[in-house]
Computed example of a mutant assay.
Amino acid sequence: MKSRLLQNTCLKLFITFLRLGAFTFGGGYAMLPLIKRDIVEKENWLDEGEFLDALTISQSVPGAVAINTAIYTGYKIKGTPGAFVCLLGVIIPSFTIILLIAMYFLRFQEVGIVNKAFMGIRPGVVGLIFAAVISIGKPILTQKKSIIIFLAAFFLAVIGLHPIGVIVAFGVLAFILNKGEKKHKEDKEDEDVKEDKEKNNDD
Results as ranks from 00 to 15, higher is better:
Ala132Cys: 06
Ala174His: 04
Val85Gly: 00
Phe108Thr: 07
Tyr75His: 12
Gly127Leu: 05
Phe17Lys: 02
Leu5Arg: 12
Lys12Val: 00
Gln59Gly: 12
Val168Tyr: 06
Leu52Val: 11
Leu13Gly: 02
Leu87Glu: 07
Lys194Ile: 08
Lys12Tyr: 08
Arg4Gln: 13
Phe155Thr: 14
Val166Arg: 04
Ser3Met: 12
Thr9Leu: 12
Ile39Ser: 02
Asn68Trp: 00
Ile134Cys: 10
Phe170Arg: 04
Ile77Arg: 09
Ala132Tyr: 03
Gln109Ala: 06
Met103Ser: 13
Gly74Arg: 00
Lys188Val: 10
Ala66Leu: 06
Cys10Met: 08
Pro93Ala: 04
Asn200Met: 13
Ile39Glu: 01
Val168Pro: 08
Pro93Val: 04
Lys36Ile: 02
Phe170Ile: 02
Val125His: 07
Ile101Met: 15
Pro93Asp: 07
Pro139Gly: 01
Leu106Ser: 14
Gly171Val: 09
Val193His: 11
Gly165Val: 11
Val111Asp: 13
Gln109His: 14
Ile140Asn: 01
Leu173Asn: 10
Ser135Leu: 11
Ile35Asp: 02
Asn178Tyr: 10
Ile149Phe: 15
Lys138Glu: 11
Ala132Asp: 10
Phe23Thr: 10
Asp190Cys: 08
Thr80Arg: 14
Ile98Cys: 13
Asp47Trp: 10
Leu32Cys: 00
Glu110Ala: 15
Ile121Phe: 11
Val111Lys: 15
Val158Glu: 10
Phe175Glu: 05
Ile92His: 08
